[in-house]
Amino acid sequence: MSAQPKVKVRRLSIHYRDKTAVKNLDLDIAERQVLALIGPSGCGKSTFLRALNRMNDLIPGARQEGEVLLDGQDINGREIDVVDLRRRVGMVFQKSNPFPKSIFENVAFGLRIAGLRDKAELTARVEASLHHAALWDEVKDRLAESALSLSGGQQQRLCIARALAIEPEVVLMDEPASALDPLSTAKIEELMHELKSRYTIVIVTHNMQQAARVSDQTAFFYMGELIEVGSTAHLFTNPGVKRTEDYVTGKFG
C-alpha cells in the first residue's frame, strides 16, 4: 500500500471505568479497502470501531488515550465538530434501525438535517443512495410506504442507504448481517465489494467466513490487544501468530 492510510490509529487505549477495553493499539486503515475486525466477544473490536467516530463519547465512564487521525487530523481535537465527524465517518449497526417514517424520508433524513431543501436534488440523492445500497429496484414503486414494512434484509440495506446519503468517507459496520438470512447477507456482502470503490469500510464480524469473503485486510483482536493485522488471504491461510491461528481454526479453549 503506497497511498497514505485514510485512518491512522496511534497508541490508542480505551478504558471503561476500571476495565481496559483497548490496549495501546497502533493500526493503519487503508483508503477504499475493507478492513475486517475479528476476535472473541469482549476483545475490544466494537469499542475500537466506535472510537473511529467517537461513539464512545456517549458512554459514561469511557476514557481514551492516544490518537485517531482521519486524513492526518486528530478526530478528538478541540476544533473537531463531532456531528461533522460522524457525517464523514458513518455507521451501520447490527440491528437495523430505520426511523418510523417512509422509505424516502429515512434516506432523506440526514440530507434534510444537513440543510438540503431543494426537492429535485433531494430526490436525486435519495435515489442514488438507494441504488448504491442495491435497494432501488425493490423499493422504487413504494418510496412513500413505511420503512418498517420492509424485510429485515431490506431494512438493513435501507440503513446503509441512509448512511451513504450524506456521502461519508468511511463507513463503520458493526455486525451488519448477523441477523440476516443467507440471501440478504450475500446482498450486503456484494454491496461491500461495490462500495469499497468509493468508501473506506471497517466491519466488525463474528462470522469469520464473512470476514474472509468481504475484506482486504483483517485485524485480529484478543483481550483488548491487536494481535495481528494483515492481508485477509494471508491471515486465513498462514497467520503469523499462534493465537490468530488458534482463533481462525476454532481452537479456542
Partner: peptide
C-alpha cells in the same frame, strides 16, 4: 467445516 490456516493447509 470451511477450514482455515493450518487446517486448510
Amino acid at each position: 467445516r470451511q477450514p482455515a490456516a493450518s487446517d486448510l493447509r
